[in-house]
Simulated assay, not measured.
Amino acid sequence: MTQCIKQFTLCILMLLSLFSASVSAEGIKLKSADLERADSDWLLNATFQIELTPGLEDAVQKGVVLFFQTEFDLTRSRWYWFDEKPVLAQRLTRLSYQPMTQQYRIASEGFTFSAKTMFEALQAVGSIGGWKVIDSNQVDQSKSYTAALRMTLDLSKLPKPFQVNALNNRDWNVTSDWVRITFLPNGPNLIKR
């Protein structure tokens, strides 16, 4: 009898570990990002890995438009006053499904893309290239700053009935962690690889 209980407990633990691994796979994770200098500006190139829950994928298939907000900020610590925030940049990317063409549409900053699969669509949403985030007159070349980057699913842009559901459902709270690095205007600035 005790052998049977041990086997049952082992099976339950294995199932729970598989379930927790599948749950933790969903969300947004920063895969790589770097800041490159172009003339007097700094451009951000980043790649996020986005994995939606089955409920969110189903909502998109049924016509709910999802908005992903990418946030970048630059701060400089000051011991004598509040931190200086010379840069706060936000970018909104829209993901929708078109049932007539059976394609996903991704729109961001005046550009529109189409994708045949959800995987391709999420790759397009998570790819940021050449986004101007810093103008050289916003930073002092001799100072050190902290650059921070994250991407979230913007729940405030959902239709009102879905906003109520999203507040009560963890599956709808999709966000990446803030990733912070030291930014030196005169040095290489790799955020993550």
Rank of each mutant, 00 (worst) to 15 (best):
R150H: 09
A166T: 11
P188C: 01
R150A: 12
R78L: 07
D171S: 13
T182G: 09
I128Q: 07
I181V: 14
K132D: 12
D41M: 10
F82N: 09
N137P: 03
D41A: 13
M100G: 03
S40G: 06
R78K: 14
P99E: 01
C11L: 14
T182N: 09
K31L: 15
N173V: 13
F48E: 05
Q69A: 10
N186F: 03
K31I: 15
R193M: 09
D41H: 13
A107E: 15
I134E: 04
L95E: 03
T101A: 10
W81S: 15
I12Y: 02
F68I: 12
E26Y: 11
Q49S: 13
A147W: 07
S176D: 05
K157T: 15
Q141F: 14
S144Q: 12
V139C: 05
N45H: 14
G110Q: 05
V65K: 00
P99N: 03
L44W: 09
L184M: 08
L13P: 04
D140R: 12
T75H: 00
K192F: 01
W172I: 11
A21M: 14
E57V: 13
V133H: 00
L149C: 06
E120H: 13
P54F: 02
L74I: 05
L18W: 06
D140N: 15
F162I: 14
V64E: 00
N165M: 14
S96A: 14
Q103S: 12
Q163V: 09
E51L: 08
G130L: 06
K157Y: 09
T9N: 03
F68E: 03
L18H: 05
A89I: 06
P54Q: 05
S20W: 10
L56F: 01
R76Q: 15
A25G: 04
S17N: 09
R94K: 14
L190N: 10
L52H: 07
A89N: 08
T9M: 02
P54Y: 03
E109Q: 13
R150S: 10
D73Q: 11
P54A: 02
D140Q: 10
F72V: 13
K132W: 09
Q90Y: 13
M100T: 13
G130M: 05
W172S: 06
M151H: 11
Y97C: 03
C11V: 13
P159W: 00
K116T: 13
V164D: 04
Q61E: 08
F162S: 01
S96V: 13
V65H: 00
P188N: 08
I128A: 07
L35Y: 07
N165I: 15
V133Y: 00
F119N: 11
L149W: 03
Q141G: 07
S114R: 10
T75P: 00
T75E: 06
G130Y: 03
A21Y: 12
K6M: 08
K192R: 10
M1N: 05
V23F: 02
Q103R: 15
G63S: 01
W172M: 06
R94M: 11
R37D: 01
S32R: 09
L149Q: 05
K132E: 15
